[in-house]
Computed example of a mutant assay.
Amino acid sequence: MQTRVLDHDDMARMVHLVGRDGLMQRMISALGEALRALGAGLLQDSPPRSGFQRGGALRGVIETMPHREPGGGVTIKTVSYSPDNVARHRLPTIMGTIARVEDKTGRLLALADAGLLTALRTGAASAIATRLLAHPDAHVVGIVGAGAQAVTQLHGITQVLDVREVLVHDINLGTAADFARRVAFLNLDVKMAEPREVLARAEVICTATSVKPGEGPVLPDGVHQPHLHVNSVGADETGKTELPVPLLRRALVCVDHREQALKEGECQQLSEHEVGPSLAELCAHPSRALKHRGRLTVFDSTGFAFEDHVAFDVLMGLADELGVGTKLALEGQPEDLLDPYSIAAFRRTSGDGPRSADASSSV
């Protein structure tokens, strides 16, 4: 039995061969179609993620996100959110791996890094929500929180709107100033701005911050464009929120996963009856979104395993197309299926002498 492994170099090769736009466009298309089917009741939803919230000096969460396609496969993503990683360890804030298990046998089909996948699918989800709920003539985008996720948030939006100006804010001035370099491939006019200016002028805003639980909001309430649409993607643990409650209560609030959003998204600040339709429902019935394009709308994006399952399908399809990835025998298969010690790699002939002390030590 062999498992296809996609490592860092494989992901880099896909970006190089397909291009940023090609990857994002494929992700938006695949996720849009899948959400439409989910909203129509043709596909199965995911359970909420679960895991461990770290306190004290070890901020963040480590979680597992499972999704099952009956008869097809099970996707399981292990993901960590560690907001101190960049400064303390020179590692990304979000790290993870993703696995695909065959539904009928349980064997491991594929294993991959989930960093790029998570960024792409989150940006694609915001693009789909923006296409449905933002005014089609919106041109000014605001970014609050200019870290890694902000890159794919803006990139996704450029695939569905004619973006002409970008206002960016981050509490770290260096990160905000560097954002223009990281999105230079989009050829946009990027300016630094304070949150109140972002709120007042932007027609679409993305919040993607590492604000601590209980220390939000990161966007003030106040005067804004009447047709403002907000993609809030930073709320991903209990107590962590980015938007002010009065703004949420004036808006149509669309969620990706209702149960998750009420527990750890912006919707933890609302009662259940104040939460609007899911993104899947709007994808299946886009006419329900059209009537809200002229008013304040919010997409509460907590990220759910269904998106990861679809995104992994996209990347595995590209791997097949490009011949990318390595096949490894990760899972053991004993010759005698009833004897776990009969793994072929450890069988010895009768002529073999005893192992040395070093060779027989545990590994």
Rank of each mutant, 00 (worst) to 15 (best):
D9C: 02
A12L: 14
M14R: 03
M14E: 10
V18L: 13
G19H: 08
L23N: 02
Q25M: 13
R26T: 07
S29W: 04
E33T: 14
G39F: 13
G41E: 12
L42I: 01
D45A: 13
P48L: 01
F52I: 12
R54L: 15
T64K: 04
M65Q: 08
M65C: 03
V79M: 09
Y81N: 11
N85Q: 05
R88K: 14
H89T: 07
L91I: 09
L91R: 14
T93W: 04
M95G: 09
T97P: 06
T97N: 12
D103V: 02
D103F: 09
D103P: 05
T105Y: 11
G106D: 11
R107G: 09
R107C: 13
L109E: 11
A110L: 02
A129Y: 13
T130W: 07
R131I: 01
L132I: 07
L132W: 09
L133E: 01
H135I: 00
P136R: 10
D137L: 12
H139G: 00
G142Y: 07
V144F: 09
G145D: 07
A146Y: 09
G147L: 00
H155K: 05
H155P: 00
Q159R: 15
V166P: 15
D170M: 08
D170Y: 06
T175M: 05
A176G: 12
D178P: 05
R181M: 09
R182P: 12
N187V: 00
L188I: 10
K191E: 15
P195I: 00
P195A: 00
R196V: 12
L199F: 08
R201C: 01
A202F: 06
A202V: 04
A208K: 01
S210W: 00
V211H: 02
V211T: 14
P217C: 04
L219D: 09
P220I: 03
L228K: 12
V230S: 04
V230D: 01
V233P: 01
A235G: 07
D236I: 03
E237M: 14
G239H: 03
T241C: 07
L243R: 11
R249Y: 10
R250P: 03
R250S: 07
A251V: 00
A251H: 01
L252Y: 02
C254K: 03
E264D: 05
E266F: 02
C267Y: 06
L270M: 11
V275Q: 05
G276A: 05
P277K: 06
L279K: 08
A280T: 10
A284M: 10
R288D: 15
R288H: 15
R288S: 13
L290A: 14
K291Q: 14
K291M: 04
H292I: 00
R293D: 09
F299T: 11
T302G: 03
F304E: 09
E307K: 02
E307R: 02
E307P: 10
A311S: 13
F312N: 05
L315H: 14
G317K: 11
A319K: 03
E321Q: 13
E321T: 08
K327I: 04
A329S: 14
L330P: 04
G332V: 06
L337C: 02
R348P: 14
T349C: 06
G351R: 15
D352H: 15
D352V: 12
A357H: 08
